[in-house]
C-alpha cells in the first residue's frame, strides 16, 4: 500500500471538518473523492503532506506514506516528500502559477538541480503536450489559455517523477473539450509513469470516467467507498443515489431531477445521528439514534447507512 490514511481528523479552530477519514491508495491506482463544496475533500488532500496550517491543525490520525507516518516527520523530511514524492495540481491553474515567472523558470524550479537542463524541460513540455512552448523561454502564464496553463501545472507536478499526485478539481475551471483532453493526458501519464492518483472532484461524471475506486464524502466523513463499477451499478447510500440522479443528461429530458433537497449542513451545527438525515428520502426514526458506521454492501464496497439491507440496486422499500 502506497498511502494509508487512518482515522484522520482535522479541525479549523473548534470546528472539526474532517471527522475521521480512512482512505487507501495502492501503487498505480486512481482513487476518486467526491463531495459537495465544503464537505472536507480538499482538506483531506492538503493533509496528506501536512499542508494544513498549524493553527487549523490535524487533531488525530495517521498518514502512512511508504510506511512512514507523514504527520511525525520533521520539516526537513517533509520537504523531501512534498512535490518530490507527492505533488499537487489545483483547480485554478492561473492562480497556482506565479504570474511574474516564465513557464520555463517555473518548471525548472520544480526539477532537482542536477537535471534541470533545457533538454529536460523540453522533455517535460513535450510529455504534457506543450510542444509549442519548447524553446520559447520568455512565455509567461498569462499568454497561455486555461487548458495550456493546466498542462503546465501538470508538467510541474510530474517533473520530479512523484509516486502520488493529488489532483484537486483539476478540470473544473475548463471547458468540456479541454476537460476531456486534460483527463486523457492524466490517464496517459498515469499509465506511463505508474502514478498513483487521488482525484478530488464534485463532478461524478469525471470521477466515473477516470477513477478505479471511489469514496463519497459528506459532512467530513466518507459515507460510501468501493470499486467504481460496484458503486455505479449498486449505489449503497442515499446521498450517492441523489448525486447520480442529479447528473443532467439527454435521457432525463424535460423531467424534473430527482434532486437532493436542502443544502449541506454547517460543521458548526451538525445534525444528530446520521448527518444526511435532514435531506434523506429514505430516513426513518432509527437514523437519529447514532451516526452509522461503515458497513459492507458487498466485498470491497462499504456504506454508512443503516438501511443498506433494505436497498437493492438503488431501490429502497420505503418506510
Amino acid at each position: 500500500m502506497l498511502l494509508q490514511i487512518k482515522n484522520l481528523k482535522v479541525g479549523y479552530g473548534n470546528i472539526e471538518v474532517v471527522r475521521g477519514v480512512d482512505l487507501n491508495i495502492d501503487k498505480g491506482e486512481c482513487v476518486g473523492l467526491i463531495g459537495e463544496s465544503g464537505c472536507g475533500k480538499t482538506t483531506v488532500g492538503l493533509s496528506i503532506t501536512k499542508l494544513i496550517p498549524e493553527r487549523r491543525g490535524i487533531t488525530s490520525g495517521e498518514i502512512l506514506f511508504e510506511d512512514r507516518d507523514i504527520l511525525k516527520l520533521n520539516p526537513e523530511e517533509l520537504r523531501n516528500i512534498r512535490s518530490k514524492k507527492i505533488s499537487y495540481v489545483f483547480q485554478e491553474p492561473f492562480s497556482s502559477l506565479n504570474p511574474v515567472f516564465t513557464i520555463y523558470e517555473q518548471i525548472k524550479e520544480s526539477l532537482e538541480e542536477k537535471d534541470n537542463s533545457d533538454s529536460q524541460i523540453a522533455e517535460i513540455l513535450k510529455s504534457v503536450g506543450l510542444e509549442k512552448i519548447i524553446g520559447r523561454k520568455n512565455v509567461y502564464p498569462h499568454e497561455l489559455s486555461g487548458g495550456m496553463q493546466q498542462r503546465a501545472m501538470i508538467g510541474m507536478a510530474v517533473a520530479s517523477k512523484p509516486s502520488l499526485v493529488v489532483l484537486d478539481e483539476p478540470t473544473t475551471a475548463l471547458d468540456v473539450t479541454i476537460q476531456r483532453q486534460i483527463l486523457e493526458l492524466i490517464m496517459e501519464l498515469k499509465n506511463k509513469m505508474n502514478l498513483s492518483i487521488l482525484f478530488i472532484s464534485h463532478d461524478l461524471r469525471i470521477v466515473f470516467s477516470i477513477a478505479d475506486k471511489i469514496g463519497i464524502m459528506y459532512a467530513g466523513k466518507i459515507v460510501e467507498y468501493g470499486l467504481k463499477e460496484k458503486i455505479i451499478s449498486n449505489p449503497g447510500h442515499p446521498y450517492t443515489m441523489g448525486l447520480m440522479d442529479s447528473i443532467p443528461s439527454f435521457e432525463h429530458r424535460k423531467k424534473l431531477f430527482n434532486a437532493i433537497g436542502g443544502k449541506a449542513p454547517l460543521f458548526s451545527d451538525l445534525p444528530i445521528g446520521c448527518k444526511f438525515y435532514p435531506r434523506c428520502k429514505f430516513r426513518i426514526d432509527k437514523c437519529l439514534e447514532k451516526e452509522p458506521e461503515l458497513e459492507n454492501v458487498s466485498s470491497g464496497h462499504v456504506s454508512r447507512c443503516i438501511r443498506i439491507k433494505d436497498m437493492h440496486y438503488g431501490v429502497i422499500k420505503n418506510k
Partner: peptide, 15 residues
Amino acid sequence: LDISIQAQILNLLID
C-alpha cells in the same frame, strides 16, 4: 454550481 445544487436550480428553471 455543485452538481446537486445544479439539479435544484435546473428544476426551478424548468418549473
